[in-house]
Design a protein around this nucleic acid. Sequence first.
DNA 1: AACCAGGACGTGA
DNA 2: TCACGTCATGGT
Length: 236
Amino acid sequence: MERSRFKVIYKTLFSWYGPQGWFPLVELHERNGVNPTKSGSINGYHPGDYSYPKNREQQFEIGVGCILTQNTAWPNVERALLNLKKQGALTPNGLNDLSLATVKEAIRPAGYYNQKAKYLKAFVAFFNAIGSKTPERKELLAVKGIGEETADAILLYSFRQPVFVVDTYSKRIFRALGFIGEKDSYQKIKGLVENNFKGNYKEYQELHALLVEHAKRYYTRTPEKVTDPLLSVVEG
DNA sequence: AACCAGGACGTGA
DNA sequence: TCACGTCATGGT
């Protein structure tokens, strides 16, 4: 049955890897230092603690991180975030006050800096405009630079909404498990999971982060050299 | 030294 | 609607 399959995946991955503590925050990185288990990566995670974001600034920072990490490795995003914070621009007002050229320079390590700088400017305007309320998905999608995945990631990690984030990693895993087709749409995959998983925001946060962690172990570089242990657990 | 990473947009069929 | 080219740095 569909429903139990996603629950099984969730419980299995959780038993293997434990809570992932997404979404990382630079404040925690500076407090915890470098995590030796994740190469070159900060330790901005907070496993088992679902009380983040604790304030509006952290809420904003997560949104910025979601945009900067588009098709980009997290260590590169970290540098950009730290540069922004150094400029006092990891807050709505701070980033708003920074010139476009300065934003570009600060986020350069994250790649695509010309477009992402504009995306961030558009996001600040949007973030200030919505005040303290949770945005609709449609509204997020109307912001330049925010596509389907980024919209869901922001809803999930910044606004604690129980939505599933479809990314390249979850697609690879679900493809291997035979759950989805080669060119299934984003909405189709999102619907498939949400209609069957039915978890709270904490579970959706973990599910997404766990799938990323799992995919990094079995679906990158030379995946054919490693057999995904999930295959024998779920049995297509 | 290619290849790729927690995608989105603009364009032309 | 959809396939395709473009955007860019840094790790492996």
